[in-house]
């Protein structure tokens, strides 16, 4: 199944990726061949088979006691931040 240019642009937007106009045909071709490849799955008979989200059967979620264990490490954690002011992470102004 071939993906249209518009589909590729839409997917890129959902994933917040900016594709150069010149790159789009290549991604369009790559993604189309990948989609065709995974389309093979259609052949499998899966009626009555439950989806398997985890590789180990029977494991269930463990619970953590409600205890505060993390101290304030803002200074350390913000060392990797590209832009901060007054302890806040900065982004271009958002209009709600």
């Amino acid at each position: 199944m071939a993906l249209t240019r518009e589909q590729v642009e839409n997917i890129a937007h959902l994933a917040r990726l900016e594709l150069e106009p010149a790159e789009i045909p290549r991604f369009q071709q790559n993604l189309s061949s990948i989609v065709e490849f995974i389309g093979e799955l259609e052949r499998a008979e899966t009626a009555g088979i439950a989806p398997m989200a985890h590789p180990l059967p029977g494991l269930t979620q463990r619970l953590r006691p409600d205890v505060v264990s993390e101290p304030d490490e803002r200074e350390l954690y913000q060392k990797n931040a590209p832009q901060v002011a007054a302890g806040l992470y900065l982004v271009p102004k958002v209009i709600e």
Binding site: L41, A44, T46, I49, A50, P51, M52, A53, P57
Partner: peptide, 15 residues
């Protein structure tokens, strides 16, 4: 459904 869920079903068959 067609891809993600289908793949997870086939995953169970493989397991």
């Amino acid at each position: 459904d067609a891809y993600y869920l289908k793949a997870q079903r086939v995953r169970r068959l493989i397991a």
